[in-house]
Design a protein around this nucleic acid. Structure first.
Length: 560
RNA sequence: UGGGGAAUAGUUCAACGGUAGAACAGCGGACUCUGACUCCGUUAAUCUAGGUUCGAAUCCUAGUUCCCCAGCCA
């Protein structure tokens, strides 16, 4: 009862944490125990990250623990691949469940015994109705349901049938075990919910041992109770399951009675976080896989180069509440930049090259110049970069007829080449079609390193790479997967963004970017943050744009 | 027409009967060898109508709007 204040200093406050703190202060609980309970039927996405950060975060902040528990009660949808991926994703996000890895399937035997307990107490029965009959007698939202003709079966008959269900004597769908609660309840979850269904399927963990499987409602709360969960945190759609959650715990000899609390799930603009749709995206070949960098999955986000700290920062920023909300994707971008700006080393890369010939540069062999790796972190050191008579600059950094406020290169204009020299554009060379294909420039030898001894200023500094020494690379730019802030989930293909992936095959990058072959994210100066993609081949590096830098110039142009 | 929830700046979240505040976005400016970063300034909100109270975003009443529930999915 001593340490009720959160252990972690800046643990954001929300109604869940308020409840936990109050429970600790009042002595209702001595230690907080939470759990993250994914069903292994797909990959984790950013919405899960919110739940993971909440559950593990609360436990961490209040000195408790958080379990990882697989809700593996439906073998027809679950696979080992997902189990492995989920564990890897939670670890990557930065959380550790220690020894507390569990599965609902660990409790199948106990759940079965408890089902018999309910039968003996006259609170559960085997129903022989077909699925259609059950649906018909369940009633509607406004009309009460009718009792099943099998509802008043005797205890012994129920026990016998239930055991034969387990023994595999009946085919799928032949019978179910139902709780006997109230077919007239306004809460449809209380109209004799199904506890067990017959499923002749192979379970990733229990194999073919079981022919019947517990439903979510029947398994979840009891699993919580077995593990001594104090605060069972889930999303809003389970709010009206809570009376059922409590009914089981009140009617079974469980070792503890956890409490369920619900929060609003995450929604993001231009993003779909429905497992059904994400699955269809992968299976339908609309993306390259679960880890396609355009996917909102943790695997995709990771491959795009987003550091886990950025995700944690994002989750902290959006808060936790009970109101449905739609978070602007820009908030995620902000969190990513926030983290990467501090950690990513700077490099130069030209995405859409435009050749520049420096006419008065005397040394055909070029020279080496020094560049800092991180402007705010001297400890990051410096590196040498090659300069030469021919370089590439960004096509966007030249305009033949510049509008006012355009500070970069144009005929007659002078700019600084970062870490190199001032150059002045003398001529734009065009091809037959009138496209600018090359710039003829002159440089000022006195400005070596980037400063003019005469104190002369330039309005812009642009990045560049040596034509001879830079290496070719492919750069993949990612845009939102959907064209609408709120894509139509029932017809998502219509809202798919045809420009979600933009491949730049002719990019040129500093050689230092491929020497280390390190997976560390870097900033391409004036462009954004990038990371090496696993598709890279020797001699053919591929970079993913994690997120672009803020681009005030683009905004000015867009407005004009 | 049943049951369960939610409504505060453009967005997300605070304020727990006592000065409506933050972050993101926006706008303006400073700085700058990244039109980045950083810094400064600024626009902007209590769903509606009544009531209780010295005082209401907060309590009460009646509405309005939005979300979830009729799987042998979770």
């Amino acid at each position: 009862m001593t340490a009720v204040e959160p252990v972690t200093a800046d643990a954001g406050r929300d109604f869940i944490r308020d409840i936990v703190q109050a429970d600790l202060e009042s002595g209702r609980h001595k230690q907080v125990v939470t759990r993250f309970p994914p069903e292994p039927n797909g990959y984790l996405h950013i919405g899960h990250a919110k739940s993971i950060c909440l559950n593990f975060g609360v436990a961490e902040e209040f000195g408790g623990r958080c379990h990882l528990r697989f809700d593996d009660t439906n073998p027809t949808k679950e696979e080992q691949e997902y189990i492995d991926a989920i564990e890897a994703d939670v670890r990557w996000l930065g959380f550790d469940w220690g020894q507390h890895l569990y599965h609902a399937s660990d409790y199948f035997e106990r759940l079965f015994e408890w089902a018999e307990h309910l039968i003996r107490a006259g609170k559960a029965y085997v129903d022989d109705q077909s699925q259609d009959e059950m649906r018909a007698s369940r009633g509607t939202l406004t009309e009460p349901g009718r009792n099943s003709p099998f509802r008043d079966r005797g205890v012994e008959e129920n026990l016998d049938l239930f055991r034969r269900m387990r023994a595999g004597e009946f085919p799928n769908g032949a019978r179910v075990l139902r709780a006997k609660i109230d077919m007239t309840s306004g809460n449809i979850n209380l109209r004799d919910p199904v506890l067990y269904r017959i499923l002749h399927a192979t379970h990733p963990r229990t194999g073919t041992e079981w022919k019947i499987y517990p439903s979510y409602d029947y398994a979840h709360g009891q699993s919580d109770a077995i593990e001594g969960i104090t605060h069972s945190i889930c999303t809003l759609e389970f709010e009206d399951h809570r009376p059922l959650y409590d009914w089981f715990l009140d009617n079974l000899p469980v070792p503890s009675h956890p409490h369920q609390y619900e929060f609003a799930r995450l929604n993001l603009t231009y993003t779909v976080l429905s497992k059904r749709v994400l699955n269809a995206l992968v299976k339908g070949g609309h993306v390259s896989g679960w880890d396609d960098p355009r996917m909102p999955t943790l695997a995709g986000i990771r491959r795009r180069g987003v550091p886990p700290a950025a995700l944690r920062d994002f989750v902290k920023r959006i808060g936790v509440a009970k109101a449905n909300s739609l978070v602007d994707l820009g908030v995620l971008d902000f969190s990513i930049r926030e983290v990467l700006n501090k950690s990513a080393q700077r490099r130069m890369a030209v995405l859409r090259p435009l050749k520049v010939v420096i006419e008065n540069y005397p040394e055909s062999q070029g020279e080496e110049l020094e560049a800092v790796n991180h402007p705010d972190d001297p400890a990051a050191g410096t590196r040498r970069i090659r300069f030469g008579p021919e370089i590439f600059i960004e096509q966007d950094d030249f305009m033949e007829n510049p509008p006012k406020k355009f500070f970069r290169l144009s005929p007659g204009a002078e700019v600084r080449l970062r870490y190199a020299y001032f150059i002045t554009c003398r001529e734009a060379v065009k091809d037959a079609a009138g496209n600018v294909v090359e710039l003829r420039c002159t440089y000022d030898p006195a400005t070596k390193g980037g400063n003019a001894p005469d104190g002369r200023k330039v309005k812009a500094t642009i990045h560049w790479v040596s034509a001879k020494d830079s290496v070719p690379a492919e750069v993949r730019l990612y845009n939102p997967l959907f064209t609408k802030p709120e894509p139509d989930v029932s017809n998502f293909v219509n809202d798919l963004n045809p420009n979600s992936l933009e491949v730049l095959a002719e990019a040129r990058v500093e050689p230092s970017l491929v020497q280390g072959n390190s997976p560390e994210p870097v900033q391409f100066e004036r462009q954004g943050y990038f990371c090496l993609d696993p598709d890279s081949q020797p001699g053919r590096p591929i970079f993913n744009r994690t997120v672009g830098l803020r681009d005030t110039w683009a905004k000015i142009q867009g407005a004009g």
